[in-house]
Computed example of a mutant assay.
Amino acid sequence: MRKAVIGLLLVSAVLTGCADTEHTSSHTVGLTATEAAPLTDAEQLRISDAQQRLIATCMRRQGFEFWEAERLSLAESRTLGYVLDDIGWARGYGYGSRLRAEDAAARAANPNLAYRKTLSEQRRQAYDKALDGGLDVPVISVEIPGGGTVSKQMGGCVAESEKELYGDPRAWFRAEKTSGHLRSLYVPRVLADQRFSAAQDAWSRCMKKVGYDYKDPGAARQAAIARSDRAAEPKVFEAERKLAVADATCARATDLRRIGEERERHYVAQLRDRYGDALDTYFRLQHQALDRARKIVGPRV
Rank of each mutant, 00 (worst) to 15 (best):
Q122F: 11
A108M: 10
A109E: 13
E233G: 00
Q52H: 11
D255C: 05
L80F: 13
G88A: 10
R91Y: 00
Q125A: 15
F237N: 10
W172E: 06
D213Q: 04
E143Q: 14
R78A: 08
A224C: 04
L39K: 11
A289V: 08
E264A: 13
T34K: 09
I47A: 04
D128F: 08
L8E: 14
A90E: 05
V301I: 10
D103V: 06
K235Q: 13
H27A: 15
L80V: 10
G155E: 07
Q153A: 15
L15H: 06
R227Y: 03
H287W: 06
A224M: 06
A239M: 09
V139F: 13
G81R: 00
A231C: 02
D132F: 14
G88L: 02
A105Q: 12
I296V: 14
D193S: 07
A293Y: 02
G298K: 02
P188Q: 03
D201Q: 08
T149K: 11
T57M: 08
D103M: 13
A159W: 05
D255K: 06
E262M: 14
G7S: 07
A108V: 10
V142L: 12
R61A: 15
R98S: 12
L285I: 03
I259F: 13
K208F: 00
L99C: 11
L113D: 12
A69S: 13
H287A: 07
V158I: 09
F66R: 12
P299T: 15
T118A: 12
E240K: 01
T40C: 02
T178S: 14
I140C: 12
A171G: 01
C206I: 02
E35D: 14
L185Q: 06
V297L: 10
M154T: 15
G298I: 08
A69T: 05
F237D: 15
P217R: 08
A56R: 10
P188T: 02
A198G: 10
I87H: 14
V245H: 09
A109D: 13
L45K: 00
L290Q: 06
K152M: 01
P38D: 07
V5C: 03
V5P: 01
D280T: 05
A192H: 03
T32P: 07
D132Q: 12
D128I: 03
G88Y: 00
V139Q: 14
A202N: 10
Q51I: 02
R61N: 14
E143T: 14
K215D: 15
R124F: 03
D103G: 03
F196R: 11
K129C: 04
R227Q: 11
G156C: 10
L84A: 09
R170D: 15
D201H: 10
D85A: 03
P188H: 05
D136T: 04
V29S: 13
L182G: 01
T16E: 15
Q51K: 15
L191I: 00
I87L: 08
T28P: 14
L80C: 10
E68A: 13
L243E: 00
L271G: 02
Y166R: 11
A199R: 02
C58T: 02
A75C: 01
E65W: 06
A33M: 12
L54E: 07
R116K: 10
N112H: 09
L165I: 07
K177R: 14
S12W: 02
D41Y: 01
R116T: 06
D193Y: 09
F283G: 05
V137L: 09
K117I: 12
A239F: 03
F66G: 10
T16Q: 11
R257L: 15
V150N: 08
L119E: 05
G167A: 08
A239S: 13
E240H: 12
L72Y: 07
C206T: 00
